[in-house]
Amino acid sequence: MPKTSTGTKFKYKIKGLERRKFRFAMAVMIPTVILYLVLRIIPILGTFYLSLHRWNLIKPYRPFIGLQNFAKIFEDKTFGVALVNTTIFTIIVVLVSVILALLLALALKKKSRIGSFYEFAYFLPFVIPMVPVSIIWKWLYDRTYGVINFVLTSMGLKAVGWLTDPDIALYSIIIMSIWKVLGYYMVLFLVGLRNIPEQYYEAAAVDGAVGWNSFRHITFPLLKRMTLYICVIATIQAFNVFTQVYVMTTGTQGAPAAAVRVLVYEIYQNGFRYFKMGYASAQVVVLFAIVMIISLLQFKFFKTEDY
């Protein structure tokens, strides 16, 4: 910049502008950082802190006990049951809903009038919150008056205690959970599919790749990123299953709580029923570690080939 009087003036002006911009950035970022500290970071760190203490809400004496809470977890039978149940729940829900969603998305890829009706129908369960949906399904599943058993018996099959039979209750909740999330993953897959340029398929068709081959060599690799994302959020959500279990196990028509005990329910019980906040926090840490490890494994699994 030439050193004329106007030049220095201009520079000075820019300096003023820079300062103004910096001030604006700070005026925004300082409150944002404070909000994040208070509403996210401190509670997250607080979980780790609590997990190392015997912390009962009612008792004022809250000593540091190191890893004793974690040692207790390994002997805790109900936690073991909850962990197994949650794992079964997650594996089935993630696998089935992701595969079904992908098939649906492939079927609905071309935009059409009827296609938007399908989108409406399949997405509706996702839009409606979990509580009313669980209440409706609880009734559909009712042993005596439920419509599902009516259909079964009228076809000559035996009635099933969908929620009352401890061997089946978990799977009933799994079916309903797949029904609930299917549309969301379908829409995400649709986004991924429609982002693949049509030319790729045309070029591949010229080379003779159609049908399964074009899916395997074009669709699948290009959809990897979206599949990874869907698998990660599906896993996180499935591992944190709570609402449907809570609603479906309450009341006399509900499922036996022990048979469908899942991790967040267990944490909720320990933390807010028995007020064992330290122990419940240790369970949270275990849950969090498991989810993190699975997510990292998924990243690894999908990153075997570069894209």
């Binding site: 996210r40 607080g46 944190n240 807010f272 926090s281 989810v291």
Partner: peptide
């Protein structure tokens, strides 16, 4: 800062609701 903020999405609310409740 941005990475930290994005990182918090990996932690579901259930994982810090107990300290949040105490706070």
């Amino acid at each position: 800062l941005f990475m930290i903020i994005l990182g918090t999405t990996m932690v579901p609310f259930e994982c810090y609701m107990i300290p949040f409740y105490l706070m």
